[in-house]
Amino acid sequence: MKKRMFSLILAVSMIAALLTGCGGSSGGGEQTADGEQTYNWRFAHEEPVGSIQDQYVHKFVETLSEKSGGRINVEVYPVGQIGDATQQTELLQNGGIEFAMVSPGNTGTIVPENQLFSLHFLFSDDMEKNKEIFKTSKALNEMLSAKYLEKNIKVLSYWPEGFMQWTSSKKLEKPSDFKGFKMRTMPSPMIVAAYEAYGANPTPVPYMEVYSGLQLKMIEGQENPLSAIEEMKFCEVQDYLTLSDASLYVTTTSVNPQFFDGLPEDIQNIILETAAEMEDYGFQIQAELNGGALEQIKATTDVEVMTLTPEQREEFKKASMSARDKYVGMVGEKGKEILDALVSEIEAIESK
């Protein structure tokens, strides 16, 4: 209770500071010489400078500026500058910032239905098929987005930062290898349940504390896309890197709905067009950074790189299915409807 109260006080303090420094939540600036309105907005993301999210956000901001003829100016806040990922989400909900990257792993208690992204072996192992799923899925873009909107978050797009891979202090080749294993997770009930299905001991740890946790052996392993693993140097303090492709790290490009609804229609259209155009860029940048990261890891560390065989993946997939029942138990019938619809959409695309 005290921790929650502290978080709320901190969020309120941040909002006050941001509104004071930026002229309020309307996002308006000065008028140009020809009488057109300019806009000054804020966009927070969950990762360090140079990361996938950071590059995506800067491209998003650049595109907004170009499409608006320089009328839209956006200040970018990497993680830590105005709070952690959870605090940034609270700021977005409360109107303290206009845009944020909101990842399901950090918002599972806010929008419980989004925890389907944490289920293992749900999506295709073919990223081109996943691109089609994210662009066309009604389960995500309509049904799940409605759940976000109920929590005062308007999702502009869902996109993955890559497959989640495992680093560890021992080999992880079959589900029983996880028994009692202290696996770092994000503070998501579903991620915890996913690893409990293998018999692991999931241990939530803040992202910026994972390296020291591994180094001090407070935790024994972690999961992340390859770009994050390389960027954070996790392989320096781990013995094995397992390419499991067990799940996707999915994030959302989101906006405060009251702010968005209060904008002129032409400005709204610029935002929507930019979000749509950025979908391909998100897939492109994750492919580039994750591919380069693996080569860098191999060249600069002694970590042993292993790839799960199809047979090993199937064994993990079977063990992971019990987590789907836990998901339904957590989110109820409405969440089950979203999951069932998404599974049907994925199966249809996989069968093409």
Rank of each mutant, 00 (worst) to 15 (best):
F181S: 01
L122K: 06
S176G: 02
S118Y: 06
K170M: 09
E173Q: 14
F123Y: 15
K151E: 11
S157K: 14
A146E: 14
Y211M: 10
P160C: 09
L119H: 05
H120K: 14
S118I: 00
E173T: 13
T167E: 10
P204R: 11
L116S: 02
E161Q: 15
F121T: 01
M143F: 10
A193L: 06
G162Y: 12
D126Y: 11
F181D: 01
F178C: 03
F117A: 03
V205T: 14
M164I: 06
T203D: 06
S118W: 05
L116N: 03
R184V: 12
R184P: 00
G199Q: 11
S157H: 08
E132L: 15
A194W: 08
I133Q: 02
F163G: 05
Y148H: 09
I133N: 02
I191M: 14
Y207F: 11
G199R: 12
Y195I: 07
L140N: 05
M190R: 05
F121P: 00
K129V: 01
P204L: 12
Y198R: 10
M190C: 04
N152G: 01
L149W: 01
N114D: 14
S176N: 09
E173C: 02
M190V: 09
I153P: 01
K174F: 07
M186Y: 08
S157I: 06
V192R: 12
L156W: 05
A197W: 07
F181G: 00
K182G: 00
E209P: 00
K135N: 07
P204D: 08
M190I: 13
S157V: 03
P189K: 14
K151V: 02
P202R: 11
S176Q: 14
A146C: 03
P189N: 13
M164G: 11
L119V: 05
